[in-house]
Design a protein around this nucleic acid. Structure first.
Lengths: 117, 117
DNA sequence: CTAAACAGTGGAGTACGCTCCAAGGTCAAG
DNA sequence: CTTGACCTTGGAGCGTACTCCACTGTTTAG
């Protein structure tokens, strides 16, 4: 798969993918003509990158996951582990949101002390 | 309260607070000697800023809330409205996270296709 | 009176995550 | 053989959110 198709399928720009390659977030083979050639799994990987990113992980952190994954003896197992870890993060994030929601909820209509200056 | 104390209580650096003032995220009176003088409520406000930020709101968005709040005829009512709106945003974000979680959950242990090459 | 601890300003620099060129090579269709 | 869609590279630029610096002024304690 060349970069344009990958970009379309992953919902990213080509420039973004080239940028990700530069920082080691994706790797691609090259065709004889120099064009990048990505495996279909890269689409899944990029979706995961997006997910992790919205969860607050930096590209550097995600890149470290990528390396761990690549070096793992069992990649399916490693991936499951990664996902489980992300799920824990999501749960924590949701708990945070719930707490904030409760806090705001309690303040609604109370003329609470956030009067500014 | 001068900037140093505010910084300590809010867990931010003085530079950050001066930066926030520059972009209109906090406002302060000035003492006769030119030093900034913040009200105690600013601490609460800054905590709110921190929270909103970790939830993914940009400083610009938070700043708009701040202005709406300041310009509102009835500040208590405006604040309630703001909180209710935030709650809706939070609910939406939680639903998003729940979907993400379900997605990851479904992949765990399936030896899903994310082999990286 | 002096030293230390605070405060002020303006402006430069940094890290992150893109985004947009410009100039050029590759390739299939007509 | 040209046109157009695709690809390449390097490098500049941008928005966000700080962070640091140099230099200066103010206040307080000894």
């Amino acid at each position: 798969m060349r970069i344009g198709e990958l970009a379309a399928q992953a919902g990213l720009s080509k420039d973004t993918i080239r940028f990700y390659e530069k920082i080691g977030l994706v790797t691609g083979r090259r065709l004889p003509n120099g064009y990048r050639d990505f495996s279909p799994e890269t689409v899944t990987w990029l979706h995961y990158v997006r997910t992790a990113q919205t969860l607050g992980f930096s590209l550097a952190e995600i890149g470290r996951n990528f390396e761990e994954l690549r070096d793992a003896p069992d990649s399916a197992e490693a991936l499951s582990g990664l996902f489980e870890e992300k799920i824990r993060v999501i749960d924590a994030r949701m708990a945070e949101l719930a707490a904030l929601r409760a806090d705001l909820d309690a303040r609604v209509g109370t003329g609470c002390p956030l009067r500014v200056s």
